[in-house]
């Protein structure tokens, strides 16, 4: 009940704390889709493909969370690999951000959607600053330089960016939860965590010989034809010194890490007509045993994803979908 009183209170007081122009979900998605829209496609991370496989849990996290995914068992998933941007035909090797999304449909009352990106943190800590960041990116290098200067909280992100080189394969990237979540155990104890999905493959053993606009996707399909692609799912446990509500701040490397199991990707499908296409990978779709923190970016993702999903769903219903170009 307390949280709902807080809600009422914040509804009344929030405008008083507004120091940046506040944007709506509609404005956000308008900005993401830009001038050219691609009917039926996601407004952000439009280019992607469906994947499926299973999460093989070792049971290590079951003492922190009652979610059935963490029991010592295998849970199938429908996932999606994608790149940042609104263009479903964009040259994929050039994309600065790659994503991995997973959907666990354990039962009719238990759904878990996970949407991860290559950066471990956000540059800013709330959706309104994030909006201004995207505006600056669209304006060009000078504007984004000025934006980062005006936002010292972007230090951790910039440090990561300086040391990050986009790889030549989806199988070589590490995908991060970015936002923190709570694992909730049987006694209702909450443990704040972030997670990363780390590749088994290494740069020395993997070379991408594909070229062209679909090199990343084609290389991954090639790998799957040779066998499963494996990742470790690693959780980082926050301590009391860490602020789980701030997505721009990295937690120290010394924090305890636990491997929850392996993510085994076995198959792919084209996204149009594929099983992942109808899924809104909203990270606030959580099963019992996992809860959302009050991270403002995490909370904003739900309404923005819903707006993007609604727009493309209506286009699909109207039959107004551009057929995929042949690859």
């Amino acid at each position: 009940m307390k949280q709902y009183l807080i809600l009422l209170f914040s509804l009344i007081t929030l405008p008083a704390f507004a120091d940046v122009p506040r944007v709506s979900a509609q404005q956000f998605v308008d900005l993401q889709q830009g001038e050219s829209t691609y009917p039926g496609y996601r407004r952000a991370h439009a280019k992607g493909m469906c994947i499926s496989g299973e999460f093989v849990s070792n049971g290590n996290l079951s003492r922190y969370s009652t979610a059935s995914v963490f029991k010592s068992s295998k849970t199938p998933f429908i996932g999606r690999l994608s790149i940042a941007g609104n263009n479903p035909y964009a040259p994929d090797l050039k994309a600065p951000v790659r994503s991995l999304a997973l959907s666990f449909a354990t039962s009719q009352t238990k759904q878990w959607r996970v949407a991860m990106n290559t950066p471990p943190v956000m540059a800013v800590a709330n959706p309104h600053d994030f909006y201004q960041q995207i505006v600056a990116i669209k304006k060009g290098p000078e504007a984004i330089g000025a934006f980062f200067e005006a936002h010292p909280e972007s230090a951790d992100f910039l440090q990561w960016k300086a040391n990050y080189q986009p790889s030549s394969s989806f199988a070589l990237e590490t995908y991060h939860s970015i936002n923190a979540f709570y694992l909730v155990d049987e006694q209702n104890q909450r443990q704040a965590v972030r997670w990363e999905v780390k590749p088994h493959a290494s740069t020395s053993s993997l070379k991408n010989s594909f070229t062209g606009d679909n090199a990343l996707f084609n290389e991954f399909k090639q790998q799957l034809s040779d066998g499963p692609v494996m990742f470790d799912w690693v959780f980082t446990l926050a301590t009391e010194q860490d602020d789980e509500h701030n997505p721009a701040k990295r937690w120290p490397q010394t924090r305890e890490k636990m491997i929850a199991g392996q993510i085994k990707i076995t198959q792919w499908q084209a996204q149009q007509g594929g099983r992942c296409d109808g899924i809104n990978y909203d990270p606030l779709v959580l099963p019992q045993g996992i809860e959302a923190t009050k991270d403002p970016i995490l909370r904003a993702r739900s309404a923005a994803y819903a707006e993007s999903y609604r727009r493309r769903a209506v286009e699909v219903l109207a039959g107004d979908v551009e057929e995929g170009r042949d690859e």
Binding site: R22, S24, L284, P296, R299, A300, S302
Partner: peptide, 14 residues
């Protein structure tokens, strides 16, 4: 449906 604020989740749940 418009709000990107932190309380959106609680409002949606309610």
């Amino acid at each position: 449906v418009k709000s990107l604020e932190v309380w959106q989740l609680e409002l949606l749940t309610l």
